[in-house]
Computed example of a mutant assay.
Amino acid sequence: MSTRATHRDKTYFSDRSAQEMKQFLKGRDLTVQQQLAVTARMLAMDGHEAGLAGQITARAEQPGSYWTLRFGLGFDEATPEDFIRVDDDLHTVEGSGMANPATRFHLWVYDGRPDVNSIVHTHPPFTSALTMLEEPLVIAHMDQTPFYNDCAFLKEWPGLPIADEEGRIITEALQDKHAIILAHHGYLVAGKSVQESCYLAVYLERAARMQLRASATGKIRPVPDALAQEAGAYLRKTSIVNATFDYYSRQTERYFGNYLQ
């Protein structure tokens, strides 16, 4: 009996894995506040924490409001109870505490992008180093392909983003993409879910780290467009994104203890 594998087109394996992931990858049932707490803890573990500078938000069911971590806490301290709901003038309407004033520019993204339901903005070391060089992301590795044709670049720094003008500038630069590198600042990712925003935030910092390390050694060579598009679409499958997020939740619970209760 021959043991030679049957040669099949890549589409067969892509479609089959998609069906099997639906069958076998069962996600955790977490509230939006728990999802936001997982995101905060994961980013803290991944080195994104920069004092009180970063923000994590999620569009609320109530129009004109969103959930955010109350100001004064670091990502590594966040629990579900620490997320408050604020209106479009940053007044707290649910929970206790105040919003980080810098989340005001998130309002502009939510208003201009109805497909976006969660935003992460931080100043992690490797992405921040790219911003200091005024360099956009180069897609030169498989793990960077989730950002193929989906990572904008704002070369001009508009200043501290606590007013409306900065929100307008960043939103216009983001356009229809789900990530943007902000020169002399940091990054922003805008996902269709909290899970996707967390996933993209972790992968973007890793992508920047690889780019900086590779550029210190030699010339970076981008992957072909067609292959980048194919790989990126696969790695952005909702089932993969959500399964990765579930792993992040387990990983952070092992590290921080039972913070989700």
Results as ranks from 00 to 15, higher is better:
169 I>D: 02
169 I>K: 10
169 I>L: 11
170 I>E: 12
170 I>H: 14
170 I>P: 15
172 E>W: 01
173 A>C: 11
173 A>R: 08
174 L>H: 02
174 L>K: 02
174 L>A: 07
174 L>P: 08
175 Q>T: 03
175 Q>A: 05
175 Q>G: 00
175 Q>L: 00
176 D>C: 00
177 K>N: 08
177 K>V: 04
178 H>V: 01
179 A>P: 01
180 I>S: 00
180 I>W: 05
180 I>G: 01
181 I>W: 06
182 L>H: 06
182 L>M: 09
182 L>I: 05
182 L>G: 02
184 H>Q: 09
185 H>T: 13
185 H>R: 13
185 H>K: 13
187 Y>P: 01
187 Y>A: 05
188 L>A: 11
190 A>G: 05
191 G>Q: 14
191 G>P: 05
192 K>L: 00
193 S>G: 09
193 S>V: 06
193 S>Y: 10
194 V>G: 07
195 Q>Y: 14
195 Q>D: 11
195 Q>K: 14
195 Q>C: 12
195 Q>G: 06
196 E>A: 10
196 E>L: 14
197 S>W: 07
197 S>Y: 08
198 C>L: 10
198 C>K: 07
198 C>W: 04
198 C>R: 05
199 Y>V: 11
199 Y>T: 10
200 L>Q: 11
200 L>S: 06
200 L>H: 10
200 L>C: 08
201 A>P: 07
201 A>N: 05
201 A>D: 03
201 A>L: 03
202 V>H: 13
202 V>N: 12
202 V>G: 09
203 Y>F: 03
203 Y>I: 01
204 L>K: 05
205 E>K: 15
205 E>T: 08
205 E>V: 08
206 R>Q: 12
206 R>G: 06
207 A>K: 11
208 A>R: 09
209 R>S: 11
209 R>V: 07
209 R>N: 09
210 M>W: 14
210 M>L: 15
210 M>S: 11
210 M>G: 07
211 Q>S: 14
212 L>Y: 02
212 L>R: 00
213 R>V: 05
213 R>L: 04
214 A>F: 03
214 A>W: 00
215 S>G: 11
215 S>L: 13
